[in-house]
């Protein structure tokens, strides 16, 4: 038995048919076709599935899809700039080498986007603190912190 979920997905009204127990992560990937958010652990540890719900970073692997009813959900696909290009935050990740294999990157960028929308000019410690729930096995984090620092304060970020 499926239920219709109504939400604002990356700025557009959407109605999706979902199983009542579905996770938001699966609905985004399999029903909405937005495969940016990744499943690493499925247990809230790695942050690869991070998306914004009403502007707040959440693990979509632990978020029941039906709890998104009437809410605004933004995924990495929704961050792209007005002309469809990369946002300044995404560009900073490219320029500073903030991504290697890229598996953690959509989650990292979404956590960074939540941080920058609450705090335009975070310190390195604040950046690291905002990324406690995002694991990266490639970069060693230094380039990720540098990417976010580079994007901070820039017009249009995140």
């Amino acid at each position: 038995m499926k239920t219709t979920l109504h939400l604002k997905l990356n700025g557009r009204d959407a109605a999706l048919e979902v199983a009542p127990h579905a996770r938001l992560l699966d609905v985004l990937r399999d029903v909405a076709g937005l495969t940016g958010a990744k499943e690493g652990c499925g247990e809230g540890e790695c942050g690869a599935c991070t998306v914004l719900v009403d502007g707040r970073a959440v693990n979509s692997c632990l978020f029941p899809a039906l709890e998104a009813e009437g809410r605004s959900v933004v995924t990495i696909e929704g961050l792209a700039g007005a002309q469809g290009g990369l946002s300044s935050l995404q560009q900073a990740f490219v320029q500073e080498g903030g991504a290697q294999c890229g598996f953690c990157t959509p989650g990292m960028v979404m956590s960074a986007a939540a941080l920058l929308s609450a705090n335009r000019d975070p310190s390195d410690d604040e950046i690291r603190d905002a990324l406690v729930g995002n694991l990266c096995r490639c970069t060693g984090y230094a380039q990720i912190v540098a990417s976010i620092r580079a994007a901070a304060g820039k017009a249009g970020a995140p």
Partner: peptide, 9 residues
Amino acid sequence: MGSRQIRNV
């Protein structure tokens, strides 16, 4: 407790 993502929910 946990991460931002955890504390938000």
